[in-house]
Every structure is written in structure tokens, then in C-alpha cells.
């Protein structure tokens, strides 16, 4: 059984509106994403909101297109493109936050997309806590995740927080333990 199928099955076994810390590595990053966006979310009839602070949404969209993943129910909150003063071409399914330090605006854009896609439950993916930690203090990040995860739980949304194993620190593990119901390591599913 492929990694993407195993990841999807593991996620499907969790209760609704779970908050999950998903530990991934560079070598299983795209298999994990395929399992989430191509199996788990469609099987559960979820709209996916992909918050990226790691690489621009356009790069992820290109990768998803190569993987032939249907983008119809996938939306992006991109907090890196404007910050990096990158390409000005905007994708129809992406909205932009000026900087990964504007965490409140990330929450506001997630809220906006949830309202725009009402009628279906949501899966909110945060990619990744490690890149957010580059731009924000641990206190700020803890408060952000605590507020966001509780808000999403109240809306019956799933939350997936990506953590790159290679870049985890004790502070990051503490935040994940505090706000997430469960930690899953993609390499061990």
C-alpha cells in the first residue's frame, strides 16, 4: 500500500474536527499531500484550505497539477508571495496575506474562505509551523495556533499542522502538544 493511501486511511480513522500535527520529511512531502488532498479530503467531502507560509501557492498549485489532483475544492491562503515580492499573477483559488507575521490576517482569510465555501465542512492545512516560527515568536505562534484551532474545532473543521521533522525544535513540539489532539508521523503510518 502506498504512503499516500496509508496517510489518508490514518486520517479517516480520526474523529471529526480533529486537530492533527503531521510530522513530515522532505522525501515524503508530496506523497503525504497527495494522500490528504486526493484521497482524505474528497472521501470526506471536505473543502480544503491550504495555508502556506513555506513556498508560494503557485508552486504548490503547479505541483498539484503535475500530480493530477483536482483543484476544484482546494483554496489557498498564501502568506509568502507578497512578502517575497514575487510574481504578480494571482491564482483564482488563492488569496494573499502581506506577510507571515500577520497571523491575525491569516485567521481572517481562513474565516473568509470558510464563509465562501459554506455548505461543506472544511479541512485547514497549515504548511508549516516551522516556517511560521522563522517569522514569529514562540509566544505569538502559540497564541495563534490556540486561537485558530479552537475556532476551527467550533466550526467542525479538521486542522492539519505540518511540521518538518528536520526543523523541529522543543518549542515547536510544545506548541503542537498543546493545541493538537494527536501527532502522526508520515514515515510511520
Amino acid at each position: 500500500m502506498s504512503l499516500s493511501v496509508r496517510v489518508a486511511q490514518r486520517l479517516e480513522s480520526l474523529p471529526e474536527s480533529s486537530a492533527i500535527a503531521l510530522r513530515i520529511r522532505a522525501d515524503n512531502y508530496f506523497d503525504t499531500i497527495r494522500g490528504i488532498l486526493d484521497s482524505f479530503a474528497p472521501n470526506k467531502n471536505l473543502d480544503s484550505i491550504y495555508v502556506t507560509s513555506t513556498i508560494p501557492a503557485s508552486s504548490i498549485i503547479n505541483a498539484l497539477e503535475v500530480l493530477e489532483i483536482d483543484l476544484e475544492h482546494i483554496y489557498f491562503v498564501d502568506s509568502v508571495s507578497q512578502f517575497m515580492m514575487g510574481e504578480s499573477t494571482k491564482h483564482g483559488h488563492a488569496i494573499y496575506v502581506e506577510s507571515p507575521t500577520m497571523l491575525e490576517n491569516v485567521m481572517l482569510k481562513v474565516e473568509y474562505l470558510i464563509r465562501k465555501t459554506k455548505g461543506r465542512n472544511n479541512l485547514v492545512i497549515l504548511d508549516s509551523i516551522n516556517s511560521m516560527a522563522i517569522h514569529n515568536s514562540t509566544k505569538m505562534l502559540s497564541e495563534f495556533f490556540h486561537t485558530l484551532v479552537n475556532n476551527l474545532r467550533a466550526k467542525k473543521s479538521y486542522t492539519l499542522v505540518f511540521s518538518m521533522e528536520e526543523y523541529e525544535s522543543d518549542e515547536i513540539r510544545n506548541i503542537l502538544n498543546l493545541v493538537c489532539d494527536e501527532t502522526i508521523s508520515a514515515a510511520e503510518v
Binding site: 491575525e104 481572517l108 482569510k109 473568509y112 464563509r115 465562501k116 509566544k139 505569538m140 505562534l141 497564541e143
Partner: peptide, 19 residues
């Protein structure tokens, strides 16, 4: 609170105080 002016109306979230 921090607000955003959107097509869905005014949205608000608490101001984070950590930093």
C-alpha cells in the same frame, strides 16, 4: 480585535498579544 473588510462583510479576530 483585528478586522478585515470582505465581500462576506466585516470579519473580526482577536488581536494576538504575544508579540
Amino acid at each position: 480585535y483585528v478586522l478585515d473588510l470582505t465581500h462576506c462583510g466585516v470579519l473580526l479576530v482577536p488581536l494576538l498579544k504575544g508579540g
